[in-house]
Write a protein that binds this DNA or RNA. Structure first.
Lengths: 218, 218, 218, 218
DNA sequence: TATGAATGAGCGTTCATTCAT
DNA sequence: GATGAATGAACGCTCATTCAT
């Protein structure tokens, strides 16, 4: 899957021509991600991003002419990364194992790119003005396809009877929660969140809970 | 539990002295909730709230002197409502039944006051600047207390072995997801979200998944 | 001399009809004086005055319909009080004695009503928008009359040769300085300003300096 | 003496980096001086200053981020200019001659920069919120030092017995009066104020009056 | 590429004043 | 007399964006 393909209405993203361009665009995107993740599109200012990117505001706007353009580019990259593991669910695989792989992949994304998760959460909370079309189009298509697979597994008795869409929601909810509500989790658990075992512990818990709910009783 | 008690640093919330005050403050809070839920504190403008409340901006500020005051009042009310069912978990009750009740209560809140959930999500995403102290203080205390109860149940074999904190996170994640990611869910499921059976269906799914994960295997 | 007579364009000062009216108007004027003296007409707010007068804003505006009205009333009263000792200079008196009396009277006013002095200073600094006509009319007439007297005294050799207008300015400057620059004087002299002898000491110095400058050398 | 040195709490006065910066900052300061001199800090608006500087409001704020910053810069420059001649009073000089020089210098400042004098007067009238520390610190130190010199002269019989501090106040009062009460003086003297001889006449009068008061009688 | 300079629109908040009771 | 409620106009300041170099 190519970046910038999935999210539909691709902004006239000027392709980087030079090395400097590519580097600076990357710097800007990284800086903007951390700002947008916290305050959303409207609550973030170009000044903050420029400051975070250690760049002058006009120079930043030389690379991305509008604030929205940076925001859109970030969302597109995020969606691309998120769809990949979902698309990888194999109808011919072992159901629980396939779900375990998907959950693990999502948890891994939440751990490695928590700000991307928060960026997306912000976008959805604010009514999905930018990704609405993408949700209703490509995402819905993919989700429906995978839901059908799950429904097939349930029909075959290889999964406990569970609504496929709600299962997917539960996976999204639990995995993304660790990124989106990171501040709350830190407030409740303190420094142990940064301890070495925390990720595994969280993964273990999520997998246990979700997979127990879908593993067929015999 | 009294409104405005839980969230600590209560702004000098001038109690309404007249009928008009009470009515208008309520109108403003309702309007502000729908705005803040979408765009957070920084992304929302007093103009938007005033317009939503069908009130002039200075008149709105006659009731709440600062934008922050409205925001804080809303968060406090939300936290109060959210803590009640958690506090109600009874150590002497039947474990799965207690959890079922808590999950149902949270789902009910998500259904009846989805904007409050989004308001809170926005606050957390932006780093919890307002509720940080509350999270680290009263909430942590309550959560630790309830986690101990769960841990006790697990020790007695009345629940499957699961980390209590992560279980709580999973409950929060799955229940609030229906409010916070409502737009995404609608994009994926279409009009059926507004159908009569949807809430029950969602509740059924969440309860099935979570409770299967904690019900002890024998 | 009647209050409100001197300053020309007398505002439609509704005469107090009742006891309460008279009392409240006096309270307001006293409160407003302390506010206007510090921040001038534009820099002062009705809220400040109302708060200082321990009165609600609408109630205050019931007595004086506009901020300007209070300001004007205060200026008029001040000018009345100030002109009296100047008018009292007697052409048939002993020159140095007459000046001593005038200087003493002005120093006394500065000591008893320093805020009135600051109010007037503020008005002049801001271009005398309210008292301009009064300055050019009644005040000029009176000053010219007294200057003529002084000039006569100089002509008769009863005073050292000094320009009468500049002499008056010097008197005004030195006497009002103790009220207008009170904060500066306190910063430089510390608590001794409030000591019992300070006024006398200041009076002594001013009288010495000014009168030595005008006492005829023989 | 360096500008911005005397007044203590120097705002992070970003030194002009470019030609345009230097020019525009100067334009703004000049415009602001004429506005602040009339209405003080609170009574003045950024709009007025911008309009006076023939500049858009945001552009003005591009050079000085806050209204206070302009105000402070102006006060610092004024204080620097004012202290110089006071500091120049020479203990080894001829007393009356030293005082004459100081008075002349102050009169010259009042004539050349009357608005600076009014700016300062406004600041003092409003309670010296910005220069309070400066008054109590550096200014008090310098004044006390010079007062000691004067006291020495008096002790040696080279000056008439006069309180040194009150002498300084009298000099300040009379010299600054021509700037601070300019409007009043014009109202009383008419066009002659702009005549060629007026400054000399005023200087003559002030010097005569003050110096006669201090010249030792023999 | 990069930056200094500039601006129209807007934002949170204050203010003088009015209205209704 | 006195107060709660309401508002148009500002005010200090910020923001996204543009322009010139």
């Amino acid at each position: 899957m190519q970046p910038g393909k999935t999210a539909g209405k691709t902004a006239e993203a000027k392709r980087p021509r030079t090395r400097t361009q590519a580097v600076n665009r990357e710097i800007i995107l990284e800086a903007a991600l951390s700002v947008f993740a916290k305050h959303g599109l409207r609550g973030s200012t170009v000044d903050q991003i420029a400051s975070e990117a250690e760049m002058s505001k006009p120079n930043l706007l030389y690379y991305f002419r509008r604030k929205q353009d940076i925001y859109r580019a970030l969302l597109e990259a995020t969606l691309d990364a998120w769809l990949e593991p979902l698309a990888a669910i194999d109808p011919d695989g072992e159901p629980v194992e396939e779900l375990r792989r998907y959950i693990s992949a999502k948890l891994d994304l939440a751990r490695r790119r928590p700000e991307a998760s928060r960026l997306f959460a912000n976008e959805i909370l604010s009514g999905a003005p930018v990704v609405e079309d993408f949700l209703k189009g490509p995402l819905k298509a993919l989700v429906d396809e995978k839901a059908a697979i799950v429904r097939g597994w349930v029909g075959e008795g290889r999964l406990a009877p569970v609504d496929p869409h709600h299962l997917i929601f539960a996976i999204w909810a639990t995995t993304q929660h660790y990124a989106d509500f990171d501040v709350q989790i830190r407030a409740l658990l303190g420094t142990q969140v940064d301890g070495p075992g925390f990720s595994d512990q969280a993964a273990q818990a999520v997998l246990t809970i979700i997979l127990s709910g879908v593993r067929p009783r015999d």
